[in-house]
């Protein structure tokens, strides 16, 4: 299936992916307005240390630990995309305990959140990929 892949060699650490991600999840059509004065609440997150930076988002693991450990059944997989039903999530964060990539995080509202490859957003394709100015983030099928 197609997944988001990151090449740290090309990452500028500009955090545009975080902004595009937060904007896609928030909906609306004016990014500046939607995110003005707000700390972007993104599902993709930049790690930065010295000269190195790269973006981390859900790997949509075939054998997803978050989904196996979920105490409520709120995590499910459809066509390979691991997603959270926010209505069923009780914010216990067992998924945060289990994700080896640190790619599931508490949302400001409580329920856990993670990259769902933008399948629930208006556009339907990953906003972080489109927003990356240096093609450090790509959406490709690499046979996984």
């Amino acid at each position: 299936m197609k997944k988001v892949y990151v090449n740290e060699k090309w990452c500028l650490g500009c955090r545009l992916c975080e902004y595009y991600c937060a904007f896609a999840a928030a909906g609306g059509n004016d990014m500046a307005k939607a995110l003005k004065g707000v700390k972007p609440n993104s599902r993709i997150k930049i790690e930065k240390h010295g000269d190195i930076s790269f973006a981390v988002s859900c790997r949509h693991c075939k054998e997803a630990l978050c989904l196996r450990g979920c105490i409520t059944g709120a995590l499910g997989v459809t066509d390979g995309v691991v997603a959270i039903d926010h209505e069923r999530c009780v914010s216990c964060y067992t998924c945060v305990l289990l994700c080896p990539y640190g790619a599931v995080s508490p949302s400001p509202e409580g329920p856990a959140q993670k990259c769902e490859l933008c399948v629930k957003t208006t556009d339907g394709s990953p906003a972080c990929v489109k927003g990356c100015p240096n093609r450090a983030i790509v959406f490709e099928d690499r046979g996984e």
Partner: peptide
């Protein structure tokens, strides 16, 4: 580094690439 904050940055480059770059 990882004691201060859990992060993939603490892994060697090859390991990071295999984790997020496939």
């Amino acid at each position: 580094l990882i004691c201060k904050q859990p992060r993939l940055m603490a892994f060697a480059k090859d390991e990071r690439m295999s984790k997020i770059g496939g």
